[in-house]
Amino acid sequence: MLSASQLADRLAKNVEAVCRHYLSAGRRLGNYWLVGDVANNSGRSLYVHLAGPRAGHWTDCATGQHGDLLDLVRETCDLASFRDVADEARRFLSLPHPPLVDADRLPSRGSNVNDHVSAAASAVDRARRLFRMTQPLAGTVADAYLRGRAIRHGALHPALRFHPCCYYRDLATGVTSSYPAVIAAVTDEVGAITGVHRTYLDSAARKPRSIGKARVDTPRRALGRLLGNAVRFHFPQHGSVPVMVAGEGIESILSLSEVMPAMPMVAALSANHLAAFRLPTGCIRLYIATDADAAGRHGVEGLSRRAQALRIVPLVLNPELGDFNEDLRRLGPERLTASLRSQLAPDDARAFLR
Rank of each mutant, 00 (worst) to 15 (best):
S255R: 08
M244Y: 01
E189N: 09
G224R: 09
G302Q: 07
V266Q: 09
P264G: 05
Y179T: 03
G228K: 00
E248H: 03
V300G: 05
A230E: 14
A230C: 09
R220A: 15
M263S: 03
H298N: 10
A185Q: 06
I284T: 15
V182N: 00
K207P: 00
A295C: 10
H238G: 00
A267I: 09
I253M: 05
F233Y: 09
A276K: 13
P242D: 14
P219V: 14
V190S: 13
M263R: 08
A262L: 05
R285W: 13
A230V: 15
D217K: 00
I288N: 07
Y200F: 15
G191P: 09
Q237G: 11
P180W: 07
A246C: 13
P261M: 11
V190D: 12
L254Y: 02
P242Q: 13
A267T: 04
G191V: 15
S203D: 13
H298Q: 12
A192D: 15
G302L: 05
Q237I: 14
I193W: 00
L226R: 02
S240P: 13
Y179Q: 05
R221I: 15
F233G: 03
C283G: 06
I250A: 01
I193T: 04
E248M: 06
T290R: 11
A246N: 06
R215I: 14
I253H: 00
P180A: 01
R215C: 12
A181F: 09
S255I: 09
D217H: 01
T218M: 12
R305F: 02
A289I: 11
S203V: 09
L226I: 13
V231R: 02
V259R: 02
I183Q: 02
F235E: 11
D202T: 01
I183T: 10
A294R: 06
I211N: 00
K213L: 14
C283S: 08
M244S: 10
G228W: 05
T194N: 04
T281N: 02
L254I: 06
L274I: 03
V216T: 01
R209A: 10
G296V: 04
R198Q: 11
A181I: 13
A185N: 04
A181W: 14
S203K: 03
L256I: 15
R232K: 08
S210T: 01
G195T: 03
R297W: 08
R215A: 14
Y200V: 03
R225S: 15
K207L: 02
R278Q: 12
P180G: 03
T199L: 12
H298A: 13
P180Q: 04
R305Q: 12
T281F: 02
P280R: 12
